[in-house]
Design a protein around this nucleic acid. Structure first.
Length: 649
RNA sequence: GCCGGAGUAGCUCAGUUGGUUAGAGCGGGCGUUUCAUACGCGCUAGGUCGGGGGUUCGACUCCCUCCUCCGGCACCA
């Protein structure tokens, strides 16, 4: 009853290096891979890199190298990173590989043959500086490019469209018939409501850059990001009729792990492409949450500050894997907290599992000469413990099946706790003093078998540590094979007389000093960039939106400006706010600015401030915004091309 | 604005189709053992289960409403 299990991670865009977020997804995928291996499933895991697109082209140019050289280097970093985290994908695909490009083009042709591609015009905001389109959302107020702060323009580009709208009903039907297709539940509902709304055809090609896969039959176009990238899950298996095709439905079970930010692409666009190409859909798309780090959002600077490889080198890959799998409810947002990591390591692994191994082997060394004792007549204690063992081993398995690694591991630790309870109740040291070797043997044999089971249950998360544990237990390394179920569902104590090989603490704990030292070493240091604004909560002096909105802030241009006699600080100016007549404003700018400095300048004005009388008929109808000491003011400003009278918001 | 999720012990969270004294882990407190990595085991938290109202013999669990947080969509004051 070996299943064919195929798990994928997103392919990572090579404009960055592996960070904790990408490591997280990939570690979960690897843990699932290992779990399925243990079950005897025919298992396959895929990860890789996404290497096309304008950003890459641009970055390579900026570095003065060819895109290919650039992506070779970047992709290599991802490929090299995973083994350091004990991640062993079956395959690593790059979107620049011929095996991918050829099959993506085939996919394109199939979609085209199905009548789902048409040439049209894509119209949106375009920044000449970027040479790329911007969505409305990206733009700064006043239709400015967020990168260049210059106005974008409306532009049209020839592009192929995919008839996404056509697949609204088929998609909804598929969601309906396969409720497990999108998980978790909450995410499924989001997608559902999105698809129930209006689906617009999707632009799937570009002509404004060349670093991509040429569209078959029209090489002026390159395939646009999603059509190219999503296909990797399928192209990596070699396409239709290839030997690896058996990992794809209907024969295989294909699971895509994705971040919740790219859920839609995987549950709407990708299935639609496949429906069009008449290829079976993947079995399930599971969206996990985002990580915060020590309670802080993973900003760019934090991303780089928390390097999973550095953590792995410092603590061992297993410890990092364990924390990510155990501390974060898969599917929900989670926090990666450094001190919680150390605390959990000490508690779960050191004190619970590690000490259990240590005391068991210690007793064996003293009482049985470092060999496995015989399992004799069980008492109620053994019967109860074995019952709990069986229950937890089964529960752990069920949780892996349900994509709940945090719970699967919780069960494993619970089993270790139960063994610690059992050893206290059974008190083999007392039995040894009472000179009842058979009883001691039975107790120790029970514990050794529990530890053997643990070495399997924890292996998906802690492959290296569990390998070491098995060495100490004197058993062979786990050697998963297709069709062989290694999950320790049955409690079967070993034969007597086998050699054990205790060799000291498996999980040496950190004392307070060591913890402090590690935290100091590992904690992300980003304070320089953001002076750790601790509380940005609503302070007593906050204003409501309504209060804020009551302000009329406008862009104006200074038309006239003159000193005010006997008022050294004041300038009297008239400012054009786009109103019929320029406003007369009195402002305390004179210590910094000479009147001629300000002529023609753009300024920001509070336009609905109550008028103020300065005497001698001098009245100010507004306030000019500035910052700094009186003698070194800086005017709040906007670029010169912002129309006069524009309101700020 | 619409839709969805969440708000349970100091922290992280479980809580099945409503029913005796609301749970776990960690932390804290107390006790205890000595085989063990100063480890383990036992006991302990008296928490208005976000607020208010309702249904019911009885609600954390059902309904209404309000507040806060988060997410999706819409919109951009």
């Amino acid at each position: 009853m070996a299943r064919r299990f195929y798990v994928t991670t997103p392919i990572y865009y090579v404009n960055g290096v592996p960070h904790l977020g990408t490591a997280y997804t990939t570690i979960v995928a690897d843990a699932l891979r290992r779990y399925h291996l243990l079950c005897g499933d025919d298992t396959r895991m895929l990860t890789g890199t996404d290497e096309h697109g304008l950003k890459i082209e641009r970055e390579a140019v900026a570095k003065g190298i060819s895109p290919q050289v650039f992506v070779d280097d970047m992709s290599g970093r991802f490929r090299a990173a995973w083994p350091e985290l004990s991640i062993e994908p079956s395959d690593f695909i790059r979107t620049t590989e011929p095996r991918h490009t050829a099959l993506v083009q085939e996919l394109w042709r199939r979609v085209e043959a199905n009548g789902d591609l048409y040439l049209g015009e894509y119209e949106d905001w375009y920044c000449v500086g970027c040479e790329s389109f911007k969505t409305e959302k990206e733009l700064l107020p006043g239709n400015l490019c967020p990168l260049h702060a210059r106005p974008v323009e409306r532009l049209k580009e020839k592009t192929y469209f995919f008839r996404l709208a056509k697949y609204q009903e088929p998609l909804l039907r598929h969601y309906e018939e396969h409720p497990e297709f999108i998980a978790p539940e909450g995410r499924r509902n989001e997608v559902l409501s999105f698809v129930r709304g209006e689906l617009r055809d999707l632009s799937v090609s570009r002509t404004s850059f060349t670093w991509g896969i040429p569209a078959p039959g029209n090489p002026k176009h390159v395939l646009y990001v999603w059509f190219d990238a999503l296909a990797n899950y399928w192209t990596a298996l070699g396409g239709e009729g290839a030997p690896l095709g058996c990992y794809w439905p209907p024969e295989g079970y294909a699971l895509h792990l994705v971040g919740k930010d790219i859920l839609r692409f995987h549950t709407v666009y990708w299935p639609a492409f496949l429906l069009s190409a008449k290829i079976p859909l993947p079995s399930r798309v599971f969206a996990h949450g985002f990580l915060t780090i020590d309670g802080q959002k993973m900003s760019k600077s934090l991303r780089n500050a928390v390097d999973p490889l550095r953590l792995a080198r410092e603590l061992g890959a297993d410890v990092l894997r364990y924390q990510l799998l155990r501390a974060i409810a898969f599917g929900q947002d989670g926090d990666f907290d450094h001190s919680a990591l150390l605390a959990r390591y000490n508690a779960d692994l050191g004190k619970n599992v590690g000490n259990l191994l240590s005391r068991t082997l210690g007793l064996c060394g003293k009482v049985t000469g470092g060999k496995t004792p015989a399992f004799g007549a069980p008492t109620q204690l053994e019967t109860d413990f074995i019952e709990e063992y069986t229950r937890r081993v089964g529960a752990s398995r069920a949780h892996w099946e349900a994509l709940e690694p945090h719970r699967a591991l919780e069960e494993a630790i619970g089993l270790s706790s139960a063994a610690n309870q059992y050893i206290d109740r059974a008190a083999p040291w007392a039995a040894a003093k009472a000179d009842s070797p058979e009883r001691v043997g039975t107790i120790l044999a029970t514990l050794l078998e529990a530890l053997r089971g643990l070495s399997v249950l924890l292996w998906p998360a802690l492959p290296n540590k569990m390998a070491q544990m098995r060495v100490q237990l004197g058993i062979t390394p786990l050697a998963p094979a297709v069709g062989v179920d290694l999950w320790p569902m049955r409690f079967e104590p070993r034969a007597a007389g086998e050699a054990l090989a205790a060799s000291g603490p498996l999980f040496p704990t950190f004392d307070k000093d060591a913890e402090q030292a590690l935290l100091a070493k590992l904690a992300p240091r980003v304070d320089s960039e953001k002076p750790n604004v601790p509380v940005v909560q609503a302070a007593p002096g906050t204003v409501s939106y309504e209060q804020f909105a009551a302000l009329d802030l406008r862009v104006g241009v200074v038309k006239t400006c003159e000193r005010v006699v006997r008022k050294d600080k004041l300038l009297k100016l008239t400012v054009d706010l786009g109103e019929p007549e320029p406003r007369s404003i009195v402002a305390g700018l004179a210590l910094t600015f000479a009147p001629e400095d300000l002529l023609g300048k753009r300024v920001l004005v509070v336009a609905n401030l109550a008028s103020r009388e300065f005497g001698k008929g001098l009245v100010s109808h507004g306030m000019i915004l500035a910052t700094g000491p009186s003698e070194a003011l800086r005017l709040a400003s906007v670029p010169d091309d912002v129309p006069v009278g524009s309101r700020l918001k």
